[in-house]
Design a protein around this nucleic acid. Structure first.
Lengths: 232, 232, 232, 232
DNA sequence: AATGAATGAGAATTCATTCAT
DNA sequence: AATGAATGAATTCTCATTCAT
């Protein structure tokens, strides 16, 4: 279960091994149920070494969150095509998001499921990252409205709501697309097919397209002033 | 902190008191961090009584999930106007959803944040409920497509994806709308204002409308065959 | 699992039901592991009633020991043929012993295994009963010596030792003969066969004869002055 | 009450200390009544350390049984004079048995009284050891019959019965000889006297001789075909 | 005669964390 | 750089026992 032991490893490397072990363990067990014993064992080191480098369980968790947050933001940011039109930017960002969460399911699980569940200090860190992404999306929606020549049609509050809805939809799709059978970390085939027939794990690009179809089109109508109202 | 003690209460009543205490405690602390001691204290009874009636922490949590799941499904179901057109049905269901989650934030927190984080037995129960809701939404989208005379335009997989996206969006909005400062369970004003200026907690109807604007409009375009594609 | 409930039963009867349940439960679980809850359930009454009649777990156990002790002594005593020669008396007593322990395995288990393991109060009660039986055997050996006209050959201490050895041998054989498969209280055939081929549970009379063959013969030689000594 | 504390002791040593404490505590209190707290205290360590090394109360008890079983079998085996005639072998084995049980009363109490009372896993381990000893005795009786030129006189079943009786007699004598006042672990005089006057604790050799006198003589008659029968 | 409701006290087990080397 | 040895503080769960009816 534990990584191959190799003694006398430089600190920076050891720390990454520990964080890897921690991500994996926190994701699978949850914050409380993950024991420092298990993390140390998975990392292939002794427990005191974990304390020497990461100081405490809280700090370790915090370090995990920071690393995974940064990695996710970085992945999304890197995926965005900066000079493309807003819709294309959004799509490329989403593609980056779906690709990263699919490749790092444990990291995503820690951010999405564990961190939010465990009190202020951690939840806030994740909330901050999420806020950053929401802000980015909000801006894109604003930019799109601008491009479409529709000013003032959409209230700020409404735009924020849409951004939240969009992010939530993306999160939900990420989970859906990742259909974990939870204990089969084996079948990691990523064969990309062009057809639109159902397959085990849709490519990030397709998932992103599905969401764009849903959301962007809606935004379009909205910006055209075609609103839905209960009376209808 | 604890409810007013009243001795010799019939079992059925005590059980509900215990479940109330458990919902509250699980929501605030998380499954692992919530101690049976605290739950008993909040319920105003001794710990052994909790065990006598609910048997174990696991069973207690399970009972909580079942009660809250049932309550949520019941709330949504009751809110739906059965003979209305599909869009109206969806809107009324969403309204019920937002209203219920706003009124029972702890129950929602347990279902949405805690239960999914804690292993097969619990996650499955919540997943089952969520699946039921997704199925309902999927049917509505199908019905809407039918009403709009658009057959076969939308692949099943795509419809399922849209349903997942919609549910995720709703969940995200529910959380956003509920802005918990986590320890201010005091300010429970629900004054309903007609304006569309930002306010502390938007009415469920408005949140539902926001989402409908976003989603339904998108669906409309989609069914008109206006798809979004990366190349665009 | 519990006896058929029948309300309003006279106290004396209820007490016996409780003792029955207690014997069974103590035998199967041991003193500590047997819970008053289980005993009450097996007895088909509520726990407070057990306390009303038997006062405490200790007193209940004590009552069990007294009842089973008395029953065993009574069975052995009743089996002895009073005016027969000493060997015949011993044989008939042993027969009574083996028959009773075979018919009341739970009672025997409580006396032999549980009571001796649990501190002064109980152990003493059983020790007293055992002492009574040892005394009886000691007297028989003495009487046999008398009959055989051998006086003073056997030191008192030696006779006592022999009695202890004989009783121990009997206890060991009782257990051996009772080969409990521990959970097959089903196969309770007691078919008596005349042959000396091995069979499932030898009749008490045969077991007694085996022991007599072993012990009485030894006593005979001993009384003839034929002693065994290490040098031989 | 507890051993002298000495910090930072190698694991193997600590484990033996813990087993010592456990033997003592289980013997005096019984399996259920012995608390891990008390065992840890008697061992002079903290409870977690006991768990770290022995894992659970069950495993600790099991380890105790294995150690004490092995020690007893080893003591008996070592005492037997291999090339002596059968009777001498039996006597020397019994001497070893009585000497060991007298020197390790707690270990014997755990094996004889506690282990048999506590469910399959433990009872089986002890039963296996006892079976081994019974088998050894059975062989000796067989060998003796051979030596005495008496073939086929004794049915296998009967020989087995005799072996069981003999072992039971030995166990009973061991207990009798050890007259524990249960709380006077102080008077540990072992003065060996040659006389045959009664004394506090007879030497193992004498107890063995008493039993040989009883049993071997009986066997002799038995093999001579002088059987005891009820009709006599 | 009988019971549903309730609890104080204690038991096994786990964990984050430190010390001495 | 790294670890074997060790623990204080919880936490889940059980049980004998009582009270009010």
């Amino acid at each position: 279960m534990s990584a191959v032991k190799s003694k006398r490893v430089p600190r920076a490397v050891r720390e990454q091994q520990m964080l890897d072990a921690a991500v994996r363990t926190f994701a699978r067990r949850g914050y409380r149920a993950a024991s420092m014993d298990e993390i140390a064992e998975v990392a292939g080191v002794s427990k005191p070494l974990v304390y020497l480098y990461l100081n405490s369980k809280e700090e370790l968790f915090s370090a995990v969150i920071r690393r995974e947050s940064a990695a996710l933001v970085e992945a999304v940011t890197a995926a965005v095509e900066p000079d493309a039109p807003a819709d294309r930017q959004l799509w490329s960002g989403l593609t980056g998001f779906f690709a990263h969460t699919a490749e790092h399911p444990d990291g995503w699980a820690v951010l999405h499921q564990q961190a939010r569940t465990h009190g202020e200090p951690f939840a806030l860190e994740v909330a901050a990252m999420r806020a950053e992404i929401v802000r980015f999306v909000t801006e894109l929606i604003g930019a799109a409205a601008q491009e479409a020549g529709c000013v003032g049609e959409l209230a700020d509050r409404e735009v924020a709501g849409l951004a939240h809805a969009l992010v939530g939809a993306a999160e939900s799709l990420a989970e859906w697309a990742n259909v974990r059978t939870d204990e089969d970390a084996s079948a990691e085939q990523e064969q990309e097919q062009e057809g639109e027939r159902g397959r085990q794990r849709p490519a990030a690009k397709d998932t992103a397209a599905t969401l764009m179809n849903f959301a962007w089109a809606g935004l379009g109508r909205l910006m055209d002033g075609e609103r839905w109202a209960p009376e209808a």
